[in-house]
Simulated scan of single mutants.
Amino acid sequence: MTLVTLSDVLQPALKGHYAVAGLVTLGWEDMRAYVAAAEAENVPVILQAGPGCREHTPLPVLGKMFRHLAGNASVPVVAHLDHGYTSDECRQALDAGFTSIMFDGSRHPLQQNIDETAAIAEMAHAAGVSCEGEIGFVGYSGGEASAGTDPEEAEKFARETAVDAMAISVGNVHLQQDKQGGLDEPRIRVIEAVTTVPLVIHGGSGVPVEQRTALARGSSICKFNIGTELRMAFGQALREAVSSDPSRFDRNSILKDTHDPVVAATRQVLSAFKAN
């Protein structure tokens, strides 16, 4: 059994100068491919159930899927709730067997975010699992604009919430399909100078790979969330599988053809976060 908490994988990453990928899942096919890729690279992996995933599949089912994969994996696997917006949702994830919950109060005023995140972190720790919080809103490509993380607020947030990981807004954007952006490294340096908690980058698909590697090896950023680029790889593989034989209609047969391409794309992502 290799089911572990977020702290179990991020604290060694912080000390060992590497990062762990938080991979955004949508269904059985991609989460199975992510674990296969992690085993091939011999690295831990964080399986993440975000809002879109939870709309499609109930949390109790996702918890069992994650735990089944972890129980048969040769590498550490974290079962992580991504962007939980309410205490009830976070409690449901705990009851479903998740080993890490991320509460997103980043749209709220600072003190409300601190108070709500601290209460959820306390609930998580009482259950023996980890908690990630977010300070500074990370926006969406073509949608809501980001609000960058203030380093003084980050220090207060980390100290008063006792979170195990802290997501920050430093030029990262959700759902970005290219890698033309890049992160605000001076802001990252100020934040890591006043905090000791592992830092998290949401919207990691939009960050150039070279910068991901440099920050994984040379900063307190220990977790990069990656979703969009792997969903794009899955979509391309699925289109090719459907188009290759118009007479084929069995979805299990079609979806099977996505496995190897998604494993290959995921291995590229994971390899960039390794230590020197």
Rank of each mutant, 00 (worst) to 15 (best):
P151F: 05
G171D: 12
E153F: 01
I168K: 01
S169W: 02
F137R: 11
E160W: 13
G136Y: 00
H125Q: 14
R159G: 14
E153A: 15
G128R: 14
A121M: 04
G136K: 04
V138K: 01
G133P: 09
I168S: 05
G171T: 06
G128K: 14
A165N: 06
A158F: 07
E132V: 11
G148V: 03
H125A: 10
T161W: 01
A162T: 13
G136E: 09
G171V: 03
M123K: 11
G171R: 11
N172Q: 02
L175M: 14
E144N: 01
C131F: 00
T161D: 01
G143H: 08
E122W: 03
E144Y: 02
F137P: 00
V170S: 00
A167K: 01
F157Q: 05
S146P: 11
E132F: 11
A165L: 05
A147I: 14
T149V: 09
A162G: 08
F157Y: 15
G142M: 03
R159L: 13
H174I: 10
G136F: 05
A154Q: 07
D164G: 06
V138M: 06
A162M: 10
P151S: 13
G142Q: 01
A165H: 09
D150F: 09
A167S: 11
F137E: 01
G136S: 02
G128L: 10
G133W: 10
A119F: 02
A154T: 02
G133M: 08
F137Y: 15
A126Y: 04
H125V: 09
M123G: 04
G148Y: 14
E132H: 13
A147M: 12
S169C: 12
Y140L: 10
F157W: 08
E152M: 08
A126T: 13
D164W: 11
A165K: 08
D150A: 06
N172M: 06
A158V: 12
A127F: 07
E144F: 00
E155Y: 04
A147Y: 11
P151V: 11
V173W: 00
C131R: 07
G136V: 00
S141I: 00
G128I: 12
V173Q: 13
V129G: 12
A167W: 08
E153D: 15
T149I: 09
E155T: 07
S169Y: 07
S169K: 04
P151Y: 12
R159F: 13
A154I: 07
E132T: 13
V163N: 01
D164Q: 10
A162D: 15
P151E: 13
A154C: 08
R159I: 06
V138D: 00
A119K: 14
G139E: 03
S146Q: 04
I135A: 04
Y140C: 06
M166T: 03
I135K: 02
M123S: 08
L175C: 15
A154E: 03
C131P: 07
E122H: 14
G142I: 03
